[in-house]
């Protein structure tokens, strides 16, 4: 963090709001993140916490009419000239963002069928993506596409390339999506719940694939998921989001072994672990994720928080991120340098 040179993507105090018929949704409300080149950052949170909106803000894929980036900057280091640009400031429909999308920052989604066209073959779609960003001959692009399909573990790439997406299984489609995303060798891959729609054994395949491809292509990955297990398998660093804000971030080891925020602790405790606590009562987080339209004063988590204290937590601006140990941050009003978060058991 001290050397500014090192980051690939740096988000500062990002605020993305949606304007709905019922009111303003503060989907992302002051998110700051730093992604280093070649590393994997896991962004974890429950539905409605703003993790996907953060990703879409980076690529400027938000609906123009109903949403707006109110504040903040998204600094992205471009590949060749090492120039840093602020993605918030550029035209979301302009040439510049289009040359970045796909070529330098690629994205894969939860349900690949929605992002693959049903009327074109897999090959056509990958080749189109390649030709969009690179000046090469179509024949060369086709060979490259076959090579990409092979590198994502689709053995029958030569025949697969002429198939239509609906003929493939969910896992194969996700692999095609990954092949397409990586075809232009991006420096950042955003994976938005890439395994949520898949079976466990296929999920394991995709996780292994992403891990090996990351090494091979030397890219950074922003992994968005609600599944703590998936994060634990793949991420180097992790940021936990709740209601539009990051409540805790740090290295995987720091957050999983020494979680500080009551929400992180709650999440980790509420998941059953195989072979660990059979028939023991689980420790859920009480209540449920509040309505996104609500404006909560003070700490957004306080109403569900087991260690909540009226005086400290309510009626304030909310906590700031505190650096607890190098690169381990927590946003909790009860955090005390000497005692940790007061009230946390152990």
């Amino acid at each position: 963090m001290n050397e500014n040179e090192k980051y690939l993507l740096k988000i500062n105090n990002l605020k993305t709001y949606f304007y709905t018929l019922d009111g303003i949704v503060r989907a992302v409300d002051g998110v700051s993140l730093t992604l280093k080149p070649g590393k994997t950052m896991g962004l974890v949170g429950e539905s409605g916490c703003g993790k996907s909106v953060t990703a879409h803000s980076i690529l400027r894929l938000l609906p123009l009419k109903t949403s707006q980036i109110k504040e903040g900057e998204i600094l992205f280091r471009r590949r060749n000239d090492k120039e840093v640009i602020d993605l918030v400031k550029i035209n979301p429909q302009g040439k510049l963002i289009r040359s970045i999308r796909g070529k330098e920052i690629a994205i894969i989604f939860q349900e690949p069928m929605t992002s693959l066209s049903p009327v074109y073959t897999v090959g056509n779609q990958i080749i189109e993506a390649i030709l969009l960003h690179r000046q090469i001959e179509p024949q060369e692009a086709r060979e490259h596409a076959i090579q990409m399909l092979k590198s994502v573990g689709l053995g029958m790439a030569e025949s697969m390339i002429d198939e239509y997406p609906h003929r493939l299984s969910g896992g194969q489609r996700q692999r095609v999506m990954i092949a397409m995303a990586l075809s232009c060798n991006p420096s950042l891959l955003i994976a938005d719940e890439p395994t949520t729609a898949l079976d466990v054994t296929i999920q394991a395949q995709i996780i292994e694939l992403l891990k090996s491809l990351q090494k091979q292509f030397q890219m950074a990955v922003l992994m968005i998921t609600h599944n703590l297990g998936v994060i634990a398998e793949i991420a180097d660093e992790i940021a936990v989001m709740y209601l539009g804000r990051i409540v805790e971030s740090g290295s995987l080891k720091q957050v999983f072994e020494n979680p500080l925020h009551p929400y992180t602790i709650g999440l980790l405790k509420s998941v059953p672990i195989i072979g660990n606590q059979t028939k023991k009562r689980l420790a859920p987080i009480p209540g449920s994720v509040p309505d996104p339209l609500s404006v909560i004063e003070g700490c957004a988590f306080r109403l569900r928080c087991p260690v909540y204290k009226q005086k400290e937590c309510a009626g304030q601006e909310g906590a700031a991120m505190v650096e607890v140990e190098p690169e381990h941050y927590v946003r909790c009003l009860l955090y005390d340098r000497d005692e940790g978060v007061r009230g946390n058991e152990n």
Binding site: P286, G287, S288, P290, D291, L293, S294, I296
Partner: peptide
Amino acid sequence: LDESIAHQMMS
């Protein structure tokens, strides 16, 4: 809790 969340957080 559910009640208080509903009241404080739902418009």
